[in-house]
Design a protein around this nucleic acid. Structure first.
Lengths: 155, 155
DNA sequence: TGACAATAGATGTTATAACACGTAATATCG
DNA sequence: CGATATTACGTGTTATAACATCTATTGTCA
C-alpha cells in the first residue's frame, strides 16, 4: 500500500483494495493534469474540451467532420456536442455547413483562425506536457501506456 | 507508438510526443472509469463527486470536518464546496453545525442515513473496481501506482 | 487597543453540462 | 410504394460548475 496518495488526500483509512487505490490515484493524477491544462489554456479563451475539439478538427483536414464524428473522437463522452460546437463557431474557430449528399449531416471545419490559434498553442502545450510528464522518461512512459491500454481492454 | 489509443479515438496523426500520448491515454482511461462509476451510482441518486464527499466524511469519523477540509481532501479541486454540501444536506446525508470555539468553522458530519447509503454501496463499488481493474493483477497495479505517484511528484 | 489583514464561509451571477424530447432526412421492409 | 424505423441534429429545461464578490469572525501588530 503506497502512502503517498493517502497522505495527499489526508485519508486515514487504507483503501478497500489495490484496484480502489489505483482508481483514486488515476483520477487524482488526471485532475491535476487537467487543472494545469485549464490554467495554461485560460489566457487563450479555451477550455481543455474546446481545445480537444479543435485538435480533432485540425487532424481531420480540409473535409472536416460531422458532429457525431467529432463527439465520438473526444476524450470524454460529450452528450451535447451541438452547443459545444456552437460556441466555437461563435468564436470564429470553426464553420458548419449542411452541404452533402445526405442532407442530415452537418460538416464542421476548422477555420484559418482556428488553425492559427492552435499553431500558437502547439509549443505551449508541448512544453506543458514536457513539464508534466517529462521526468518519467521514455521507459516509464511506455510502461504506463501499456498498463493503461491493458486497463481499458476490460469493458 | 502504441496503436490502440489512436485507433480508439480515430486519430490519424501520431501524437506530438510520448508525454502527449500519455496525457491523452490517462484522460481517456479516467473518463471511461468515471463514466462507469456514474452509471453505477445513478440508481442511488449520487454523482461520483457526491459519493467521494460522503466517503471523506465517513472516514473523518464522529467529529466531522469543516468545509475547507472536505474540499481539500477531494480528488478533484472543487471551488464551490458549499452548495455541493448543501445538496447532500438536503438529501439528509449530512448535517452541519456552527458550534465550536471558532465560530467561523462549520462542522460537517455524515448522518446515519448517509452511513447506511454508503454501506449499501460498499460491495457495489468494490465489485465495480474489481471489474474495472481486477484483470491487471497485483504486480501491474503496484507498478501503475508507482508510476502515477512519480508522475505527480513534479508540480 | 484599534486598524488592518487573514480566514471561513455564503451568495449572486454566468456558463456549461446533462437529460429528455422534437424535427428533418434517409433507410428499411412488408 | 408506403408505413415505420433509424439516423443526424437541434432545442428546452434543469442541474451543476466556475468565478467573483460579500459578510462575519478571528488573528496580527503598531
Amino acid at each position: 500500500m503506497s502512502p503517498s496518495i493517502r497522505a495527499e488526500l489526508k485519508q486515514a483509512r487504507p483503501f478497500a483494495s489495490l484496484e480502489h487505490e489505483a482508481v483514486v490515484s488515476l483520477a487524482r493524477t488526471v485532475a491535476v493534469l487537467e487543472h494545469q491544462m485549464a490554467e495554461v489554456l485560460k489566457p487563450y479563451g479555451l477550455t481543455p474540451t474546446q481545445y480537444n475539439v479543435l485538435r480533432i478538427l485540425r487532424g481531420a483536414g480540409e473535409e472536416g467532420l460531422c458532429r457525431n464524428e467529432v463527439r465520438d473522437r473526444m476524450i470524454s463522452p460529450m452528450p451535447d456536442a451541438t452547443r459545444l460546437l456552437d460556441r466555437l463557431a461563435d468564436m470564429g474557430l470553426l464553420v458548419r455547413s449542411r452541404t452533402g449528399d445526405d442532407r442530415r449531416f452537418v460538416r464542421t471545419q476548422i477555420t484559418a483562425e482556428g488553425i492559427a490559434l492552435l499553431a500558437r498553442l502547439d509549443d505551449v502545450i508541448h512544453g506543458l506536457h514536457e513539464r508534466q510528464l517529462g521526468h518519467l522518461g521514455e521507459a516509464e512512459l511506455r510502461r504506463l501506456l501499456e498498463i493503461l491500454e491493458h486497463a481499458r481492454e476490460r469493458r
